[in-house]
């Protein structure tokens, strides 16, 4: 397809338009808009983790903290300081970058489970600080976030109802998809993959693994923070429940369910999971149970994701080289 850039572009544009009209095609009720907006926000959040998990091959458990950082920064700037949503957006990105820089430097020399443990502990510490520091609202959180109002020159846009949120969430999702696709083709994305798959080769090519890891971390954190920024407005409230493991497991499952390093994978995975939660909910505990079961089931039955099943059938022939755990996850 890459030989016909115009055709490819038209295809992507048609798909993007179809995606935008999707809530209307599904009936256009407030519940449908709300669900799809939430799917867009949470899959944007998952993409932040996706590039760490799929490209760098590490499991960051601090991405709920980046997500929450974005939400808290927006809430504090808009509610406590009366700033605009744009300032909230900038604050969310800057705060997430600052946190990612600190965490990135701390975890620079840790690998594998040590990295995961330290990022997990960091998320718990962030939650503790949010619950105890009055500046961050303490255990009550921050309430009364106004409807999202975006002003661009003479054009202004206010989103209060679910249907009005959808365009913003959808644009955010498209932007994140674009960033992730660009990242995968960028020099940094290639370097991340090489550091992950073959650290010795990367070292011989003159790549500084620690620097690559830090840079990928810095790209990834604002993505999750952007999602947090919009989520704060959608829910009109931020609190320590943003750090809940449910969000963490949701992100991980979203990334793994379809298969790693698939551009639309996290979107597909998140849509499936939230579709269940919003249309066939079993209550908060039942949904947590379903989520955990899906995650364990996928990892035990087809660790390379659902897409690998489809591919195996589509291309009969010699098996892919079976490194332990597969070439992507090893």
């Amino acid at each position: 397809m890459s030989r016909f850039p115009a055709a490819r572009l038209a295809g992507v544009a048609a798909l993007a338009l179809l995606g935008f009209l999707l809530p209307r095609l599904l009936g256009g009720s407030a519940h449908v808009y709300d669900t799809l907006t939430t799917i867009a926000i949470f899959s944007a959040m998952s993409y932040g983790l996706d590039i760490i998990l799929s490209d760098l091959g590490e499991i960051s458990l601090a991405h709920t903290a980046f997500f929450a950082t974005g939400a808290y920064a927006a809430a504090i700037l808009v509610v406590n300081y009366g700033e605009s949503a744009w300032v909230g957006l900038a604050g969310a990105v800057i705060a997430a970058l600052a946190l990612a820089l600190v965490l990135g430097l701390i975890t620079l020399r840790t690998r594998e489970f040590a990295f995961s443990l330290v990022t997990y502990a960091a998320a718990v510490v962030c939650m503790n600080i949010a619950a105890n520091w009055d500046f961050l609202g303490g255990s009550d959180g921050i309430v009364g976030i106004p409807p999202l109002a975006l002003t661009l020159g003479r054009f202004s846009f206010v989103a209060g109802r679910p249907a009005q949120f959808w365009p913003v969430a959808y644009l955010l999702l498209l932007f994140v998809l674009y960033v992730v696709a660009r990242f995968r083709r960028s020099r940094l994305g290639q370097a991340a993959l090489m550091v992950h798959m073959n650290p010795r080769l990367a070292a011989m090519c003159g790549l500084d693994a620690n620097q690559v890891r830090l840079h990928v971390f810095l790209v990834s954190a604002p993505i999750s923070a952007l999602a947090g920024w919009l989520y704060a407005f959608q829910r009109a409230y931020v609190g320590t429940d943003l750090f809940d493991t449910y969000f963490l497991v949701l992100m991980l499952t979203g990334v793994i369910l379809a298969g790693r390093r698939l551009l639309l994978g996290p979107l597909f995975g998140t849509a499936l999971l939230l579709g269940q939660k919003n249309f066939a909910s079993l209550g908060a505990y039942g949904d947590a149970l379903v989520l955990g079961t899906v995650l364990v089931g996928v990892l035990c039955l087809c660790p390379r994701g659902l897409a690998s099943l489809w591919r195996r059938r589509a291309i009969p022939g010699p098996e892919a080289p079976s490194l332990p755990g597969g070439p992507v996850s090893g």
Partner: peptide, 21 residues
């Protein structure tokens, strides 16, 4: 198979199952 990355995520999922249950 010492698939450590997937094992770690699987234990998180297991914890989620226990918490839900």
């Amino acid at each position: 198979s010492q698939d450590l990355v997937n094992l770690m995520i699987a234990t998180l999922g297991f914890g989620q199952i226990l918490q839900g249950a």
